[in-house]
Design a protein around this nucleic acid. Structure first.
Length: 268
DNA sequence: TAGGCCATCTGGTCCT
DNA sequence: AGGACCAGATGGCCTA
């Protein structure tokens, strides 16, 4: 191999690396967008990639069940569906989000709220990273489900998977054995216009950057006094922020489960 | 220190 | 040839 050829090869490799980085950044941006529409989203306490995908699958599945069977999204079954196959920390996180007031995580949210910019409130949709196809419709279920749609569940118990099946996967989360295909297509609900990540154009290559986000894992489990689900930091989408900023009464009044259903029905 | 999670690099494969 | 996609390897960061 001549030196010139070696240089060409090297240049090609460098170019390919840059493309690969860019591709993975795009993938991560998409994953981040997915995180934002999950029932429990926090910029500072991110779900891991795998847990995000699992929760997303469960979320679609659970919403489909709600639509098909008329089951209340406040039901225990709904929460169980959401938590199916998730790791225990994530299950507890989801359950904690859905319990709101009683949850230690919500206390953390409250703490974060105090340190936040104070944005939010009803009608904060304009700041949401996703634009809605029908501005006149009630808020989409995502972003408010965990607080408003299950907020007043009384006596709700978090489904904790203490005894995962023997064939659980290496990450410590049990394999999902439920139906993989939702009983009803709700793809329309997710046909949302994507916006380009604000960081996309300004992202520069930094080899092995430090990790700034905390991912939910067994180590980051929010029962720890120091961690927890922090919410409502600067830059939170308004709708997202509203979940943390709204007084509970407002959240109750504004986003009832029936709103969820009608919103869902309206978009189909 | 171990384990989990991540970003990046790299070579292989497939497609245009 | 070059780009997209994929999976394995590697090493860093973080927490218990």
């Amino acid at each position: 191999m001549t030196k010139a050829r070696q240089e060409r090869f090297r240049a090609r490799r460098v170019k390919a690396n840059a493309r690969e980085r860019s591709r993975m950044h795009g993938l991560n941006d998409a994953l981040d967008n997915l995180r934002r529409v999950m029932p429990c989203y926090s910029k500072t306490q991110k779900l891991s990639k795998i847990e995000t995908l699992r929760l997303a699958r469960n979320y679609i599945w659970a919403l489909s069940e709600v639509l098909e069977s008329g089951q209340s999204p406040e039901s225990h079954g709904f929460v169980e569906m959401l938590c199916k196959g998730l790791s225990q920390p994530t299950s507890n996180l989801v359950a904690g989000c859905l319990q709101l007031g009683a949850s230690p995580m919500m206390l953390n949210k409250q703490e974060d709220k105090l340190g936040g910019p104070g944005v939010g409130g009803v009608g904060g949709q304009a700041g949401h990273p996703l634009s809605y196809p029908s501005p006149g419709l009630p808020s989409p279920p995502y972003g408010s489900l965990e607080s408003s749609h299950l907020l007043h569940m009384k006596g709700f118990k978090a489904p904790v998977y203490d005894n995962p099946s023997p064939n659980e996967c290496s990450s410590g989360t049990p394999p999902y054995d439920g139906p993989l295909t939702p009983p009803l297509s709700i793809s329309g609900n997710f046909a949302l216009k994507q916006e380009t990540s604000p960081h996309e154009s300004e992202r520069n290559y930094t080899p092995h950057p430090g990790h700034h986000a905390h991912y939910l894992s067994s180590h980051h489990y929010p029962t720890s006094t120091s961690s927890g689900l922090a919410g409502g930091p600067h830059g939170l989408p308004l709708l997202q922020a509203s979940r943390y900023e709204l007084p509970l009464e407002v959240a109750f009044d504004s986003f009832t489960p029936s709103h969820l259903i009608t919103s869902q029905m309206g978009t189909i």
